[in-house]
Design a protein around this nucleic acid. Structure first.
Lengths: 200, 200, 200, 200
DNA sequence: CTCTAATCGAGACGGTACGTCGCGTCTTACG
DNA sequence: CGTAAGACGCGACGTACCGTCTCGATTAGAG
């Protein structure tokens, strides 16, 4: 995640207990603050205060607040993507959607903060970035839409659906299964071969 | 848009020739700068310098750079929406899509700046805001997807498609008609009745 | 003193009432603080607070606290030197000494701060610098001691005598005249021709 | 000098080989750095790096860099003063001056660093402090100048002469003897009885 | 010669001050 | 006499050192 390196071991992100603690405190603080205000109203001083970490110490871990957020985002998104990819045997998109929704449901508070709080914009971009990487690894693309556009649309649609879902009251009756269904029909199916216009 | 008031007349956005000139200069400068860097790297001093208007004068027109951008965005989006709505008799979505694409094509430089430059995020939000207003005026909603979600998806998908289109070289072979087709099949059709899952 | 320049007039140190006021406030504050602590324990924030001037504004006038002090020092020393030079017809050193002592006596509080407060070191250096300039303008040097050394000794001795004088209670009985006498016999006479060792 | 105490013995400045080594390394490093830049541009981290001693270790020996310098200064000055005092039988000031100059000449590099490098200010003050102590032990004072002032002038003059001497190229022809002469005539003689003004 | 405790290096940490940048207000001197 | 030019107070930024505090890893010197 970060480029921090311990000289002796060459491993990333030193394992010094103090470092781990500070790092975690910073991430928690960031999430707490994101529930309250958009990213650009959060100052590094806010984060330091909220996390009970020295202002200077922030920079010992992240060069900017954007990097902290990206660290969090990349971690969480990677978790999510790995899980959905693993859950589905990579061809069965419906299964993948369901796993994804179930996972989000389990961590509703976290994802609510990330997707409907002040970090929404960053999350969308990071999602897209990671998805493009994943997409690039898959050789085939059978859709009638240009691949690049297809990826963009699938991802942004999925993210929008989930963000909308998270903004609904939890008892509004939208189960993971139903949302997974929506994702399939709205985000995935439309770009599949056969869904497009009858080509001239 | 802004709250500026001319003392004598009490009217908004004075029509004094100097005011009009300054205002236009500010908007042009903002667009020029947006081609070069993202919104948050543009300072009010940049805009003042670029537009050859006194720094203080900026504040006589807009309380912040966000307001200037919103002013531009709202104007342009309103133009766009009005046109597509008028072009289509509101039921024929295909026609509307085509008008919209044609209009964007005519003002390609402007929209390229707005949607692929530093203002992209703001534009998406403003698009959504205005579309929600418009959608609220229409009583009926036949889709199998919750109306709010349907609006979000349609708008974000349209915006993404157009943004992608504008980022392609102009000679890549994507005509307005073809893009309008994509919009119809990817953004509009999927939420229409009959496209959803076979309901239990 | 400073390099500030008004674009239009080309004059130094703008005459804007606010500038003059800020500048004066900063100088006063510096002197006040120097009565209390040495230069390197005075922070720019202290000066700003003491002078009721914004922290940032300090830098609009001086690039560092050393420059502020040098500004003050150079001004005051120049005053002092000009006066002593004028008072004496440049050959009569006794008269010059007397004028100098009288002037210091008149501004005892100021010089007390400058020479016995936290700025003493800087003042000694600045005195020497200016004296060297003045000495360089005089062609002749009849002393038996190398000219450079003679200047150093005369200046440091004068400064030490005055600093010592200012540290005495005012009623200790050392009149300007008596101090001027000391200066003559201790700082000036020893380097004059005829005072040295009988040369082999 | 320092307050470091070995628990068992209660003695100051432990004799542990490692301590002695670190201490010496720190002093050398300080002198090396003083040749290059003024005291206030030398950071404790510089000293630690230069001396190949851990940063933390510095504080195990000295509470601040000023204390390290004072330690060095006091040692060296004490050496110098003891020698001059012993060399002269305390009445023959000429002999003392000569011994002093000879000693400085022998350790020219060291004294050059101390008096013309970044530590000059501190050295002057320390010289004065120690001289005052020595002067206080001598009961008599026959000069026509107040004793306190006499001490100040003698010491500062001697220091200035030596600093000037050290700044000259070594082959400029100023022998120890000649400098001792200057010291006698410029720093000592002027305050002796009979040199002052003809008293009324 | 061994073992115990002093010493050391490394470096994370909470701080304080720095000097810079941009904001938005308010004053002023000029046209 | 209005307006642009710009001085100003403010507050966040990111940096540099400070001095404190753990940690292990040596290593000196007492037994």
């Amino acid at each position: 995640m970060t480029e921090q390196v311990t000289k002796k071991t060459g491993k990333r992100s030193g394992t010094d207990a103090r470092q781990v603690k500070s790092r975690h405190a910073l991430r928690s603080a960031m999430l707490t603050l994101l529930e309250r205000k958009p990213l650009d109203e959060i100052t590094i001083r806010d984060i330091a205060a909220e996390s009970d970490v020295g202002y200077t110490t922030f920079f010992r871990h992240y060069p900017s607040k954007a990097d902290l957020l990206n660290d969090i985002a990349a971690d969480e998104i990677r978790n999510l993507v790995d899980l959905s990819m693993a859950g589905a045997n990579s061809t069965d998109m419906r299964a993948g959607s369901l796993v994804l929704c179930a996972y989000v449901q389990q961590h509703r508070a976290l994802w609510s903060t990330l997707l409907t709080g002040g970090a929404a914009g960053v999350m969308r971009e990071e999602f897209l970035r990671i998805s493009r990487e994943v997409a690039a690894e898959h050789g085939e693309w059978g859709g009638w839409v240009p691949r690049e556009l297809g990826t963009i649309l699938a991802v942004t649609t999925i993210v929008e659906i989930i963000a909308w879902w998270l903004s609904q009251p939890e008892d509004a009756g939208f189960s993971s299964a139903r949302v997974a269904d929506m994702i399939y029909h709205l985000a995935i199916a439309p770009t599949l071969p056969g869904s497009g216009p009858a080509r001239a």
